[in-house]
Amino acid sequence: MARRMEWAARSEHLRGIPRKIVIATVGAFSKTVSSFLNTTTVHNSDTLLRLLRSRPPTVPLITVSNHMSTLDDPFLWGFKGFPIFDAKLARWVLAAEDICFRNDFYSYIFRVGKCIPITRGGGIYQEHMNEALERLNNGEWLHTFPEGKVYQDDTPIRRLKWGTASLIVRAPVTPIVLPIVHHGFQEVMPEKFMFGRRPLLPLCNKKIDIIIGDPIEFDLPKMKQMAISNSHNGPTFPTMGWPSTCDGLDEAAQRCLYTEISDQIRSALERLRCFGKQILKS
């Protein structure tokens, strides 16, 4: 598909100048909205900033968060102290193809801005998941919204899609996985503001809380062995034709493994959400 524009996502595209312009412009807009037009409080920001700047160069980072508005990314990174003008440190993010890549102009801007198109409902082995793996293989930072869609009501974290878990397993170097929960962006960009539509511009004078957790520890070798064992003893499901992983996990074992990893991520996000509610009450 022409609108996927892989060439625009390359760091050497026009010597990286368009990327620097887009990242800086979007970053400045995000900083204005999150830090000046609204009040943003960030808990444990040092952990994220340390991982961005000081993790080993070959170790990738995956951040995962809840999804409360269409502008969570980039507003999530507009808090004070975040390096908004550094295009090298900027995240890659999985972005819905039907929203962000609707025409050539959008496609170019989002591609230059380090977005990877994902077809919702296209499965974990769709074409551009390989691009996400390539970014992780290069030791880069990838952000995902594993709930898979925007939820503006403040309820427990929903069952997560398996895409993020599959990236963790399939990445050549196991990524650091950092959970983040936020609250308030649903008021900055409500889905139903006037006549059932979003506002044309972000709203002001709202309170935003961003709670950054600690990295989630995964004992992948042990989890893989348990997944193989459980897949042999558990119920069978219709297969979807997934290929085996490089270490020999068949589809049934992958399903067990991705479910367990997703459940651990969901639990970590839910703990942060509950912690955030306590903060809001205090």
Rank of each mutant, 00 (worst) to 15 (best):
P190R: 08
K192R: 14
F193S: 10
P190S: 11
I211L: 12
I210T: 04
I211E: 04
D209C: 07
D209R: 08
F195Q: 08
I210Q: 02
F237W: 03
K192L: 10
F218M: 03
I212Q: 01
P190M: 09
K222I: 01
S231L: 02
P238E: 13
I210E: 04
N233P: 07
N230E: 15
R197V: 09
F237S: 05
N230P: 04
K224R: 15
P238A: 10
T236N: 12
L203T: 03
I228R: 14
F237V: 02
M194T: 05
F193D: 12
M194V: 07
K207I: 00
N230Q: 14
N230D: 15
P221N: 11
K192G: 05
D214Q: 15
P199F: 01
I212E: 00
V188S: 02
D214N: 14
D214C: 08
N233C: 12
L200P: 00
G196W: 02
L201V: 13
S231Q: 03
K207P: 00
E217Q: 10
M223I: 07
P190V: 09
I228M: 11
P190C: 09
M240V: 07
P221E: 12
P221R: 09
I216Y: 08
T236M: 10
A227G: 02
M226F: 07
L200H: 07
L203H: 02
P235L: 06
L203G: 03
K207C: 00
L201T: 13
